[in-house]
Computed example of a mutant assay.
Amino acid sequence: MKLSRSIRLGIGILAVAVTATACGGDETRSVSNSAENGNLTVGIKFDQPGLGLRNPDGTFTGFDVEVAKYIAGQLGVSEENIEFKEAPSAQRETLIQNGEVDYVVATYSITDSRKEKVDFAGPYFVAGQSLLVRSDNTDITGPDSLNGGKRLCSVAGSTPAQKVKDTYAQDVQLQEFDTYSACVEALRNGAVDAVTTDDIILAGYAAQSPGEFKVVGEPFTEERYGVGLALGDDESRTAINNAIEEMISSGAWESAFQETVGASGYPLPAAPTVDKY
């Protein structure tokens, strides 16, 4: 039996509506609502030693991981009820906007352009962009020595990559990879001359391969790490800000830093002031 054109059109519209509902049903995800249900999905990095690292046994370690767990605990969710999801730099906003995660703790710098897409709690840490080179390198000592077409690696979608484009594009050949671990491997095999991102991230990679790499120069930016969450989720942002303040005031923030980043030799900085914008 043939269906009339109007019936076929109606069925098509219904199918599109059902598909849109199925795909977009999580877009209004709220951290507080998820916490009330007893489970949280949190975006972290999987390849950053000292900050967010997936270990061979499937466990996760690092300062960002500890911050994520502390926040969850303050929201009433135990560690075993947290699902960690990988959040590469270029995908962090998308993961939040699509409702695939409740919040992101992944060396996520708070910027005005990002605040147009997602909200931030924090900051929970303040870092600065720096440079990682091979230990025998004597040419690169800081951003002022990035000249002569040196090959510099950073990650697509990251604040450090954008800083290079804005400030040093005439001096260097920027190569953008998906992860910093890929950049470090390129540095190891001589495919690039330096890697740039935040000093605390680079310190972790240097500590992971003693004697092979070194961090050079003074930090040349200020990066305020925030917890990313859905735009307009004010209730959850307030709850996360309160959790960060409690972590700092209780001493848990310093303990988490020493247990994760401290081994790299990176000095303990002053605790940040939470910005309740």
Rank of each mutant, 00 (worst) to 15 (best):
T21L: 09
N55F: 00
V31A: 07
V18R: 08
V42T: 02
V16D: 06
N33I: 09
A35Q: 03
I71E: 11
P56V: 02
P49G: 12
D57T: 09
G52L: 00
D64N: 15
D64G: 09
N33F: 13
L14C: 12
S34I: 11
G58Q: 14
A68R: 05
S34L: 07
L40P: 03
N37I: 13
T28D: 14
E66S: 13
N37T: 11
S34M: 11
T21S: 12
G58V: 14
G52M: 00
D57P: 07
G52V: 02
P56Y: 01
F60L: 13
A17E: 03
A17Y: 00
L51E: 06
G24Y: 08
Q48M: 06
G25H: 13
N55L: 09
S30F: 08
F60R: 04
P49N: 07
K69W: 00
V67M: 15
D47I: 02
N37W: 00
P49V: 12
I71K: 08
C23F: 14
G38P: 04
S34V: 07
G25E: 08
V16R: 05
T61Y: 09
T41Y: 10
K69D: 04
F46N: 14
P49I: 04
F46D: 10
T59C: 10
P49M: 11
E27S: 12
L14S: 15
C23M: 12
G24V: 05
D26K: 14
P56L: 06
A35L: 02
L53W: 01
A17M: 10
T41P: 03
C23H: 09
D47W: 00
V16W: 07
T61I: 07
K45W: 00
T19A: 15
N39F: 08
T21Y: 04
T19H: 07
T61D: 08
K69I: 13
L53T: 07
S30D: 08
F63N: 08
C23W: 12
G58M: 04
E27R: 15
C23E: 15
V67N: 09
G25L: 06
K45E: 03
G62H: 13
G24Q: 05
I71N: 04
E66V: 00
V67F: 07
N33Y: 07
T59W: 07
